[in-house]
């Protein structure tokens, strides 16, 4: 296996470069996936039947908290990659852990929010609007959940094997994924919550 020392660790081998390129393509598919979910949401947003509408339902407080937490976690995963490039294993792991904890906090608030919605009479079965809302949020939430599991697996590997071209590559790709989830959340925040509250 040829290792190219002029590149950062995560780009070091041909396989690594292919993986990063492949992951960008995967995110292209993810964009198509979320775009479809957003389209479904926009088509059904006014079809709340006898259930509550977005304006009835949304509370800005927890949503702002979620946004703040997720944005911060995007920053900390950036710091983790930065530490990784400097070869600082311990710092990198600390920032990874902070990122995952923030992710878990985000997820906690989101689950609380879901209970709140159901309590308000907006279960996933209530109307086309609630179905599309909860599916969109749920898909994002499921991505975050998967991210937590994946991030933990990578963290364990970094601890075990240190920062080599494999673990560095995985960590870098994970950071792309995490930033992507953040971007999706920005869209949810703007076009679901803010627009719904207006």
């Amino acid at each position: 296996m040829k290792i190219d020392a002029t590149q950062p660790l995560e780009y070091g081998t041909e396989e690594n470069r292919n993986k990063i390129f492949g992951f960008w393509l995967f995110m292209g598919a993810e964009i198509a996936l979320f775009a479809t979910l957003f389209t479904v949401y926009f088509v059904l947003v006014d079809r709340f039947a006898s259930g509550p509408s977005g304006a009835d339902l949304f509370v800005i407080g927890p949503v702002l908290a979620e946004t703040f937490i997720l944005l911060t976690s995007s920053f900390t995963i950036g710091l983790a990659v930065h530490s990784m490039r400097l070869g600082l294993k311990k710092q990198m792991m600390i920032f990874m852990v902070i990122t995952l904890v923030l992710g878990a906090a985000f997820l906690g608030i989101e689950i609380y929010e879901f209970f709140h919605y159901v309590h308000e009479g907006a279960a996933i079965t209530t109307s086309a609007f609630t179905s599309s809302l909860l599916t969109l949020l749920g898909t994002h939430g499921a991505h975050v959940t998967f991210g937590l599991l994946w991030g933990t697996a990578i963290l364990l590997q970094v601890r075990k094997y240190g920062l080599d071209h494999k673990t560095a590559n995985k960590s870098f790709i994970f950071s792309l994924y995490w930033h992507f989830l953040d971007v999706v959340w920005i869209f949810i925040f703007s076009f679901v919550y803010l627009k719904g509250l207006m």
């Binding site: 059904l44 039947a49 006898s50 259930g51 996933i124 079965t125 209530t126 109307s127 086309a128 179905s131």
Partner: peptide, 17 residues
């Protein structure tokens, strides 16, 4: 979801399309 969890995306009631 529509078939197994009772969501209302494509149903005939509650705003489904």
């Amino acid at each position: 979801f529509d078939r197994q969890f009772g969501t209302q995306f494509f149903t005939m009631q509650n705003g489904g399309m």
